[in-house]
Write a protein that binds this DNA or RNA. Sequence first.
DNA 1: ACCTAAAAGCAACCTTGTTGCAAAACAATT
DNA 2: AATTGTTTTGCAACAAGGTTGCTTTTAGGT
Lengths: 157, 157
Amino acid sequence: MLFLYSMSTPQTISRIDSQVNEMLKKNSLSVTGSRKKILQLFLEQTGALAHGDIEKRAGEKFDRVTVYRTLQTFVDKGIIHTIPTADNSIRYALCKDQCSEGHHHDHHIHFVCTNCSNTYCLDDVVTPEIKLPKGYSAKHVEVVVEGICKKCKGPVP
Amino acid sequence: MLFLYSMSTPQTISRIDSQVNEMLKKNSLSVTGSRKKILQLFLEQTGALAHGDIEKRAGEKFDRVTVYRTLQTFVDKGIIHTIPTADNSIRYALCKDQCSEGHHHDHHIHFVCTNCSNTYCLDDVVTPEIKLPKGYSAKHVEVVVEGICKKCKGPVP
DNA sequence: ACCTAAAAGCAACCTTGTTGCAAAACAATT
DNA sequence: AATTGTTTTGCAACAAGGTTGCTTTTAGGT
């Protein structure tokens, strides 16, 4: 008989930890060290993460290749999505609503701060309708706004 | 005394060739083989070019490094501009109106065809106004639309 | 505790982009 | 047309980013 009680003690197993387990199981992924660690990073983070960030913060424990493969798995499963940026470095962010496998539907825009170089998903800002010339048909619209973010703007009056 | 007349014979010196020379001189760039060749590629092309395309089509004659440096020079001078794409491969296209040195003002949107994977500058479609949440301020808006282009759409009814 | 399928780790490799330096080409001048 | 000073090119070497094949380890069901 185990002390199941103690296992769920707030200080022992964090809320995030169990959330991570749930998310992985929901996507029928086995719960492994790297997946937990990397998913944790995304949950603890407001903005998006570049591969470099992830490698720096999780890579000391895990192989470069493992990080690549884990990210790819998450993208395939619709847990995270990629954000194209002007400087050509892929960034990843959690999908707010679970995207279906292999098909992401991110209708929100992305914001890159030129000061702190953080990337944010502005989930409340939907991509605008674009009127295209005759003959062109749109499947997907990607909007990336560069500017100064809330935090860097300075004290709000 | 030279036969200046023969030098401007249509078949000897093409229209594009002299256009290239003009453009380079206008930007106070010396007229060299690689610059002529690469600028020609852009003038002959409707859509945008990825670095890979350029290297394939001009790189047999020129060193990889030269292609990189030439593209960089053109971007600096405002002759071409970069287009970020979802697949993280930088593409380059001619600036329609000459951009000022070091400062590009491309207010048009970009279109990537998922069929032929060509990239077009839709110069007539301006980037929309984006309403950002409080605290965020926009400096630059980049819109990339994915879909089917005019050519791939098939016969127009 | 055991077994199998999946994931991690390792090594090697490829692509993409950069840097320093010597050789070559450009353009201005005589 | 030859000379000269500056710019550009080519080469080699390097660094970062990303991929592949294969072996070892691990997760999770029995």
